[in-house]
C-alpha cells in the first residue's frame, strides 16, 4: 500500500496560501519602486566559484546555484535596479532550513552600497508583512517581521565578542569560523528584533567589495528569530581581484577534493563596466517559514524531494 501523499500536500494548504500572498507582495514592492523584474537562465555555463557551494551538473552546464553572475552582467550593461525570483540548486543541502532546490529573491542597485540594501530589507519585509495583513499580536515571529526600522546592526567582530568563547581571528586561524557562527552565535541573532550581522573578514566574501586595506568585506547577513534570511554586499567591481578570489576558491576546492568549475570568463570580461553596486540574495522559503510560523522548510513548499 502506498503512502498517503495527497493528505500531506493538503495539510500544507494554509502555509501555501500565505506563501503565495507573500510572493505577490514582494513582487508588488519592487514593481512599485520601479525595479525591473528579470528572468535569467537556470541552466548556465558559468557560475560564481564558492568553496562550499556545490552545483548540480547537467551535461556540460550547471543548474544555477544563484543568478548572481547574470544579474551583474545586466548591471554592467546599464540596468540600474533589477530583481528576480527564481529557483536555485545546491547539492547535498537538506535540513530543517535547507532544500537542494529552493526559491531565491535577488535584487541589485547600481550606485549603492550594502547599507542601502539593509534599508531595502527593512522596507521590503515590513511592507510585505503589512501587505498580507499580519498583526503585531498574531504570533511571536510576526511581531519581529513588523518591527519598525532601523533594525539592529552588529559587526561580526562584536558578535564574536558578545556570543562566542573565541575571538574571530582565532576562529579563522583554526578553521572554526563557520562552526562558531552556526552553533554559538546564530541562535542568539534576531530574537528581540531582526538584526544585520555585517562587516565580514575578507576570507568570507568571495564577491564582495573590501575596505580597510582589504581586510573587511562589506557583506551582511539578515537574521530573524535565529534564522539566516539574506546575504548581501557591496559588489566587488575589480576584475583582477575577482579573478584572484575565484582562483583561490578553486585552489581550496581542489584541496578538499571537490569538483572544479570553469572560470567565469564572460562575467569577468564585463565586470569592469559594472558601476559601484550592491545586491542581495534572500531565501524566499525561509521568509515564508517566518510568516507562516513554521519550524521546518518542508511546511512552506508543496513538494520536498522526499515527496517526489
Amino acid at each position: 500500500m502506498s503512502e498517503d501523499y495527497s493528505w500531506k500536500l493538503a495539510a500544507k494548504s494554509e502555509s501555501l496560501f500565505l506563501r503565495a500572498k507573500m510572493v505577490q507582495a514582494i513582487r508588488r514592492f519592487f514593481v512599485d519602486q520601479d525595479f525591473l523584474e528579470v528572468e535569467t537562465p537556470l541552466l548556465v555555463f558559468e557560475q560564481a566559484v564558492e568553496v562550499n557551494v556545490d552545483a548540480v551538473a547537467v551535461g556540460d552546464r550547471f543548474l544555477q546555484t544563484s543568478p548572481e553572475l547574470c544579474m551583474k552582467r545586466l548591471l554592467a550593461a546599464g540596468y540600474r535596479k533589477i530583481f528576480q525570483i527564481c529557483k536555485c540548486f545546491r547539492q547535498n543541502e537538506r535540513g530543517a532550513r535547507h532544500l537542494p532546490e529552493f526559491t531565491m529573491l535577488e535584487w541589485y542597485r547600481a550606485n549603492a552600497d550594502y547599507k542601502d540594501i539593509m534599508t531595502d530589507c527593512e522596507d521590503l519585509i515590513i511592507s510585505v508583512a503589512g501587505g498580507i495583513g499580519l498583526k503585531k499580536t498574531s504570533f511571536s515571529k510576526a511581531r519581529l517581521l513588523l518591527m519598525e526600522k532601523p533594525w539592529d546592526r552588529i559587526t561580526v567582530e562584536e558578535a564574536f565578542q558578545r556570543y562566542a568563547k573565541i575571538e574571530v581571528s582565532d576562529a579563522l586561524g583554526n578553521g572554526r569560523f563557520d562552526e562558531v557562527l552556526a552553533c554559538e552565535i546564530e541562535p542568539n541573532l534576531g530574537i528581540e528584533r531582526p538584526v544585520f550581522l555585517y562587516d565580514y573578514p575578507r576570507e568570507h566574501a568571495s564577491l564582495a567589495h573590501c575596505r580597510d586595506d582589504g581586510d573587511i568585506a562589506e557583506r551582511f547577513e539578515l537574521y530573524i528569530a535565529g534564522i539566516e534570511i539574506a546575504n548581501g554586499f557591496s559588489e566587488l567591481t575589480d576584475p583582477d581581484e575577482q579573478r584572484h578570489r575565484f582562483e583561490e576558491a578553486f585552489r581550496q576546492r581542489k584541496e578538499k577534493g571537490y569538483t572544479g568549475y570553469p572560470m567565469p570568463e564572460k562575467f569577468l570580461e564585463t565586470l569592469h563596466q559594472m558601476p559601484p553596486s550592491a545586491g542581495i540574495a534572500l531565501g524566499v522559503d525561509r521568509l515564508a517559514m517566518l510568516f507562516a510560523d513554521r519550524q521546518t522548510i518542508d511546511d512552506v513548499v508543496a513538494f520536498t524531494p522526499e515527496l517526489l
Binding site: E50, V51, N52, V53, N92, E93, R94, G95, A96, R97, H98, F177, D178, E179, L181, A182, C183, E186, H204, S206, E221, E228, N231
Partner: peptide, 29 residues
C-alpha cells in the same frame, strides 16, 4: 540531528549522541 550551513560556509552536521552501553550523552558537530 540537525543539518546547518551558515551563509556560504561549510556544511555542518550537529548531532546529539548517546552511548548505548552506559547511556551517557553529548553533542558533536
Amino acid at each position: 540531528f540537525n543539518f546547518v550551513k551558515p551563509g556560504k560556509g561549510q556544511a555542518l552536521y550537529r548531532c546529539r549522541l548517546k552511548n548505548m552501553v552506559n547511556g551517557s550523552q553529548f553533542e558533536r558537530t
